[in-house]
Design a protein around this nucleic acid. Structure first.
Lengths: 258, 258
DNA sequence: CGGATCTTTGAGAGTGATCAATCACAGTGG
DNA sequence: CCACTGTGATTGATCACTCTCAAAGATCCG
């Protein structure tokens, strides 16, 4: 739809074609955007703000420690927000997909790096202009609040996954997340899920090692819960079983007041 | 300062004394607030919005799953944002202290419960009024953005802790966080830290068990890095050593692009 | 087809969890 | 004032899940 205005990938820098306006939209998943109030002059203004830019797989979009001059919105592809320690441990705080805004909320220098998981197309915004725009357009800033709220909610869910789930529960949780983000209707008999990231990415997102991820995947396959077309294309044969594993992360009855 | 207007604790509901205006302020830690632009009528409006309310230790402020009718700001004490699974696993997503806003960003029902760690005094805001206020006061909503950003940053730091740090590193990280929140100057020779939460709370925040927390504390004590006045009052004898343990969570040189 | 990278699988080790008992402390009442 | 009780914290012994080290198997791409 509005996406077509942006070239699907012209390495290192999206070419030609005028930037398309994509309204800030709510939630981390954010599917349908681009509706809601936008006076014509708003659109005109934002057209100057958004600079389309593309990155090849595994390229760094910005580094932890850099001064935060830009923020970005994902047009297509997947971005990882991650950090590496001196001794090589890596943690991925979030995966950003279509519609997600990132790089906006660091106050000082970027606290995490942003890297392209796949080839990606982004819209880049100069932070200072972006902030100025927000000051002028209160409605937009309230929509941004909702978007941030969604990201915070996701981060807190992630906290549960990292702090209290077993390996198999973490994997189940991720697979269902991916399915949901790809718009699969939960409750379906069988779902095909594209896994854009490597085993290492999965491991670093879930707080595990590559080996554990691989072994756990194999265990799920052995039980017939999932099967592989390729390593990056998983078929969820029994989503209900995965739901059961992942359920620890989400639902829960209200219990005693302790 | 502005705190004095609110009674330090009158069980179940803060008594008398008119609500004091506390401006939304930035960052998760947020020390000095109450400055910045506030026209007199803004103050007057907010005075009607904020309802002071107190909770005794371990009381629930709201339950996961409830419809989110209110949001809160901490005036004094500590609040935990947590979730319990059916099988009893608990994860604390965050501790909220003076100046922190919580209960605002859940879109649907509350995803986490909020409970009083200590006796607390809060300001309660009706969400619908709060939102209406934001719509009328853009500056306030941008300040809220900054506050939310801070909380998101904290959540992402927490992600690193839960996903990649060892028990001793997690403890070091928490102790330094507490010290910082209490305004201790880092780099000091020796710091006394109040630990308002129980070992169980610490364990559930750090993704460990009570026993591991206890053992790790003992190990640190044995090495002379910390010592106890009581279980809830820790003296950091060698903050530098703790910094070294915790450093994995924060700093890190920029490395290869992988 | 060869070489690099990614993934899977195996064997063994280790950190933190579990199960269990003791200890410390605050509150209560005799 | 001091036993009694209940909760929270500490310590111990053992277990298990995941990590580490290692090698083989896939997959991709020139």
């Amino acid at each position: 739809m509005y996406m077509t205005a942006i070239p699907e990938l012209t390495p290192t820098r999206a070419a030609t074609a005028g930037p398309s306006y994509i309204s800030l939209c709510e939630g981390g998943s954010s599917r349908d955007c681009a509706r809601a109030q936008r006076a014509d002059r708003d659109v005109a203004f934002l057209e100057h703000l958004a600079e389309p830019i593309a990155y090849l797989k595994n390229r760094t979009i910005y580094y932890q420690g850099d001064a935060p001059q830009n923020c970005f919105r994902v047009v297509s592809g997947t971005v990882r927000i991650c950090r590496i320690t001196e001794d090589g441990r890596r943690q991925i705080a979030a995966f950003q997909t279509r519609g997600d805004l990132f790089g906006w909320f660091d106050q000082g220098p970027y606290r995490y790096s942003a890297e392209a998981v796949t080839d990606v197309v982004l819209e880049r915004y100069r932070r200072e202009r972006f902030d100025r725009f927000l000051a002028l357009h209160p409605a937009e800033s309230r929509r941004l609040l909702r978007s941030l709220s969604g990201q915070l909610a996701i981060a807190q869910e992630h906290t549960m996954v990292l702090g209290r789930l077993t390996a198999i529960e973490r994997l189940a949780s991720l697979l269902l997340d991916l399915a949901r983000r790809q718009g699969s209707v939960t409750g379906a008999a069988s779902i095909t899920v594209a896994v854009p990231m490597s085993r290492k990415d999965i491991a670093d997102y879930l707080g595990l090692t590559i080996e554990t991820v691989s072994r756990t995947m194999s265990a799920l396959k052995a039980r017939g819960v999932i099967s592989f077309r390729t390593t990056r294309n998983v078929r969820l044969n029994e989503p209900a079983v995965l739901e059961r594993y992942a359920s620890a992360a989400r639902s829960s009855a209200v219990l005693e007041t302790v």
